[in-house]
Nucleic acid binder design. Structure first.
Lengths: 234, 234
DNA sequence: TGTATTTTTTTTGTCGACACAAATTTTCAC
DNA sequence: GTGAAAATTTGTGTCGACAAAAAAAATACA
C-alpha cells in the first residue's frame, strides 16, 4: 500500500532488519496510516517488507512494550486503540512531563543543547508558517524531545517521548479531519521557554511549560468536543 | 545453575514460552543472580530452559525495552549495568513517582483498592518483622505498586514499576553484603500513607510519600557511601 | 620475541517449515 | 430452515538450520 513500505527487496545490512520493520510500523501507526484496532498480519507484513517473520515478530514485541500495539495471545496483534475515556490520565501525565523536563533543562542544560533546541524551534516555526499541520506535529515533538535531552534524566525522557508519540496520534486524528488554522501563539511560547531555559530560571521555565501544556490540552479537548457534537448531530 | 531455572523440560502450554523466559530472566536479573554486565548467551540459555532460541530472543527484546538488558548489535546482549554516576536522576524520578502515585491514589482509589493495599502492607510488615531483607524489598515493591494501581494512571504506573525494579536491584546489592537491621520506621510510614489515602487527604499523602522517598534515598546513599569508604580503605 | 595477517571458532540475525490454537465454513441432524 | 457438531482454513508460536559478523586462535613475518 504505502509507497515507502514496499522498497528495495533485499539490499539491507544484516542486523538492521528489526530496526527497519520497527521504524516502518511505528511511522504508519503514529501517522494513523494504520488505524487503531487494525490487525497486523505477520505473514502479509513479511511479504510486504520482503523478509522473514522472525524480525517482524521482534519488532512487534518492541512496539508492544511501548504500548503502540496490543498482542492478543494466539491471535493477531492489533494497533493499539486510543482510549478516549481515559484521556485525562494522558493529559495529566504529559503536563507533568512537560513541566519536569523543562525545569530540568533550565537546571542542567549545556551550551550545545541550546543550539539543538533552537534548530528544532526553527523547524517548528517554519512548519507553522507554512501551515503544515503534520509537519508542525512532528517538529513540535522534536523540539520538546530536545529539551528533555537537555534535562538529562533518561527516565523522564523515555516516558515523555512515549507520551508525545501518543499525542502525535491524537493530533493527527483531528488535524486530518478539520484543517485548523495553526496557532502562531505556540511559536512565541516556545521562544519564551528557550529564554527561560537559557537564563536558568527554573520557576519561570516550569510556569511556561505548564501554560504551554494547558494550551495544548485545551486545544485537543476542543477538538474532541467539536467532533462529539458533530457525531451527535448525525 | 539456579535450581528453578532448570525445571520441567517440555511440559509447558503453547504461547507461554516467551513469558516463561521473560519471568526467569527478569527474576535472575533483579535478584542479581545475573550480575550487571554479564553476557547472556542465547544458545546456552536455550539449552538451560530447553526451548528454541526464538522465544528467548523475543524475551530479550522485551527486557531490552524495559532497560534490564542492553543489546549490542551483532554481539551478545548483556545484563544492564547500574549507572552509579547518574544515580541522582534515578532518585529524582522515583521520588516524583512516589509522590504522584500516592497523590492520585488518595484522589482516585476505590474501596477494594484499600483491601489490596492493606494486604500488601501486611506482607511487608511480616517481612520486616522476620528480618527478611529480600522479602522486604519484594513486598515493599508490591505495596507501592498497589498504590500506583489505585491511582489509576497507567503512564505513571509503568514508569514507577520500572523504577521500583531498578531500586530492587540496588537494594539487593547492598542488603546482600551488609545485612542491615531493617528499619521498623518504614512500616509506620506505610500505615500513615494508607490512612492519608483512605481519608482522601491528597496533600498529606503527598507529603508522606515525599518523606518516605527521602528516607529510602537517604538510606541507599548511606549504603553507597559506606561501601565507598571500604573500597578506598582496601 | 613481538606484531600483522590469515584462519578458525563462536554467536548472532534471518530464514523456511511445521505444529497447534482459534476462527470460519461446511456438514449434518432434527 | 435452524442449530450443533465436524471439518477446513487462517495465522500464530516454536523449531532447527544456515549465513554473516565479530572475536579468538593460529600462522607468517620482521
Amino acid at each position: 500500500m504505502s509507497e515507502s513500505a514496499t522498497r528495495k527487496p533485499a539490499e539491507r545490512k544484516r542486523g538492521s532488519g528489526v530496526q527497519f520493520v520497527y521504524n516502518v510500523l511505528r511511522d504508519e501507526i503514529l501517522d494513523l496510516a494504520l488505524a487503531p484496532g487494525t490487525p497486523i498480519d505477520e505473514i502479509q507484513l513479511a511479504q510486504r517488507l520482503s523478509m522473514s517473520r522472525t524480525p517482524i515478530r521482534e519488532a512487534l514485541v518492541r512496539l508492544a512494550g511501548e504500548g503502540l500495539v496490543t498482542t492478543l495471545p494466539n491471535r493477531s496483534t492489533v494497533v493499539a486503540n486510543i482510549d478516549f475515556l481515559n484521556l485525562h490520565t494522558f493529559f495529566d501525565a504529559i503536563t507533568l512531563m512537560y513541566r519536569v523536563t523543562t525545569r530540568l533543562a533550565a537546571l542542567n542544560h549545556q551550551a550545545d543543547d541550546l543550539v539543538t533546541i533552537r534548530a528544532r524551534q526553527a523547524e517548528f516555526a517554519k512548519a507553522v508558517d507554512e501551515q503544515d499541520a503534520l509537519g508542525m506535529i512532528a517538529t513540535n515533538r522534536e523540539f520538546h524531545a530536545a529539551i528533555a535531552v537537555a534535562g538529562r534524566n533518561p527516565y523522564y525522557e523515555s516516558l515523555f517521548l512515549r507520551l508525545l508519540d501518543e499525542g502525535r496520534r491524537l493530533l493527527r486524528l483531528y488535524y486530518s479531519s478539520f484543517n485548523d488554522q495553526l496557532p502562531q501563539r505556540y511559536v512565541v511560547e516556545h521562544e519564551d521557554m528557550i529564554a527561560a531555559i537559557e537564563a536558568r530560571d527554573v520557576e519561570k521555565a516550569d510556569a511556561l511549560a505548564n501554560e504551554h501544556a494547558d494550551q495544548i490540552v485545551e486545544q485537543i479537548r476542543n477538538m474532541i468536543a467539536r467532533d462529539h457534537r458533530q457525531k451527535i448531530a448525525l
